[in-house]
Amino acid sequence: MKREDIVKPENLIYKRTSVLTDNVMHYCPGCGHGVIHRLIAEVVDEMGIQDKTLIVAPVGCSVLAYNYFDLDAAEAAHGRAPALATAMKRLRPDQFVLTYQGDGDLAAIGTAETIHACNRGENITMIFVNNGIYGMTGGQMAPTTLEGMKTATSPYGRDLSTMGNPLKITELIAQLPGSYYVTRQAVYTPALVRKCKKAIRNAFEYQKLNKGTSFVEIVSNCNSGWKLPPVKANQWLEEHMLPFFPLGDLKVPENK
């Protein structure tokens, strides 16, 4: 069978969703942000809620996320996305409100806003991309940097005795009464990507049901910060990140 006979509109089974704009993403080759953006956009597309979705972008590599989603969007100050989202959802409960944050934004400078939004059970969806490093500023130590991991500000490896411990903020959030759905996902294999998309879909569906905070951590890569080629970075993620940040649901509704 010839290629021309296959590549016809009626045979199309996968294309970039129109909830993403045509802008070329500025992310490094192989960066997980691109996949995660696409999954969110696909979920919004499939649920038919583009006109009802408000997204809050963070400070960090995904600071320009608003250029890639064809959604109304706001750019928060560093760490403050959950505060913006809190007000947005309370003032427009008819809209879906989504925050998108990295580890520095959500688990360091914005810890208070994160914890309190989740503890109040704000009816929002929070996407937390954890790659264990500050990508945008050039690879400095993050709250989630692993023990011994070398970064620009821990050049001899993270020394727990002087630099403190990596923070499992998702485990913390799962303890809070306001969080309804807390899960940890990854996007470096096709099966994981498909699973992650289901988790994001769940997070939106629970928001629709006014259940409280839905929190999806995605353990991701930082090829530039980790100084590894994309495929090797994903192997490193599996070998080093996942033992400390194991994948799976941390909190699921009882009557799912």
Binding site: L54, V56, A74, A76, A77, R80, A83, L84, A85, T86, A87, M88, R90, L91, R92, A112, E113, H116
Partner: peptide, 21 residues
């Protein structure tokens, strides 16, 4: 809507969020 926030930092950023709308 009236909400007691966790800090003044959160308060002003909630205002920021509301103002966006």
């Amino acid at each position: 809507v009236v909400l007691q926030a966790e800090s003044e930092t959160a308060s002003i950023n909630m205002v920021y969020g509301g103002a966006c709308l």
